[in-house]
């Protein structure tokens, strides 16, 4: 079943009186429970595309449907790259995660969400100092809280905008593994923006290559590795081969 459907998307930005064509002729279908990575060089329009899908950015032409509905009518989970600005520093870590249930739209489900959070934490085998405030947490812990907040919200789709790019290498690997476990457990539909090909291949079932100016979809490749996956995949021969194939696609796109 298709969860995200993008048809003929066009996006321009006004710039110095004229307009800058950012995205052109984007067509993409993401199935329910699929983990898709959106890969491309910096500044190519990946974030813009994600914001359009989230309903945060207007576009000129095309159609976007999430489970058959408009983005503004759907539940969108969004994990931002800037974790410290996306958390609320006046709330404890746990209250940050439970924030969607502090809103009127979340009334009645809070208790279930509390239990859900506890079981999620134990099954993902992660520790978070829940009574601490965001400024007392490490970068990785802050982003973890923001990811958990998104999962707990039970959105129709989860959009992630380079969530690990400002974390140190070791923490990034750990976070990627936790995300893989969480996806394996819950099977949410995830669209994950990355400019790191290894990350895209480790996480996703499909990698969509975005490039050119205006950006269009250059290629889509299936990632054939079985789940559950972990970091040992990065050292395997087949990973090396598929990575080489991807690098060729990127060179062709220039």
């Amino acid at each position: 079943m298709t969860k995200i459907e993008i048809k003929g998307l066009e996006k321009h930005y006004p710039r110095n009186g004229s307009s800058l064509h950012v995205l052109s002729g984007i067509n993409l279908k993401v199935d329910n429970g699929e983990f898709v990575a959106l890969f491309g060089p910096n500044g190519c329009g990946k974030t813009t595309m994600l914001r359009i899908i989230a309903g945060m950015e207007p576009f000129e032409k095309g159609d976007i449907l999430i489970g058959g509905k408009r983005p503004t009518e759907s539940r969108i989970g969004f994990v931002f790259q800037n974790y410290s600005d996306s958390l609320f520093p006046w709330l404890s870590c746990r209250d940050n995660i439970m924030f969607p249930y502090m809103l009127k739209s979340g009334i009645g489900r809070a208790e279930m969400a509390e239990q859900e959070l506890d079981s999620l934490l134990s099954s993902l085998k992660i520790y978070l100092p829940q009574e601490s405030f965001p400024y007392q947490l490490s970068g990785g812990q802050q982003q973890m809280a923001s990811i958990l907040r998104t999962i707990i919200y039970k959105p129709d789709v989860i959009l992630m905008d380079e969530p690990f790019s400002s974390l140190a290498h070791e923490i990034r690997l750990f976070m990627q593994e936790v995300l893989l476990r969480a996806w394996h457990r819950e099977k949410p539909t995830i669209l994950f923006v990355s400019h790191d090909i290894e990350e895209a291949l480790l996480l996703a079932n499909r990698v969509v290559f975005l490039g050119g100016q205006p950006a269009r979809i250059l290629n889509v490749i299936e990632v054939p590795f079985n789940h559950p996956r972990d970091r040992s995949l990065l050292k395997s021969r087949k990973f090396f081969d598929i990575r080489k194939r991807c690098l060729k696609i990127m060179e062709g796109g220039k």
């Binding site: 969108i76 969004f78 996306s86 809103l103 919200y153």
Partner: peptide, 20 residues
């Protein structure tokens, strides 16, 4: 960004004002 986070989670404008 914090306003956007709250909006995405379905906060009304009053909720956004009071809670963010």
């Amino acid at each position: 960004l914090r306003q956007e986070v709250a909006t995405l989670m379905g906060a009304t404008s009053l909720e956004r004002f009071l809670k963010v």
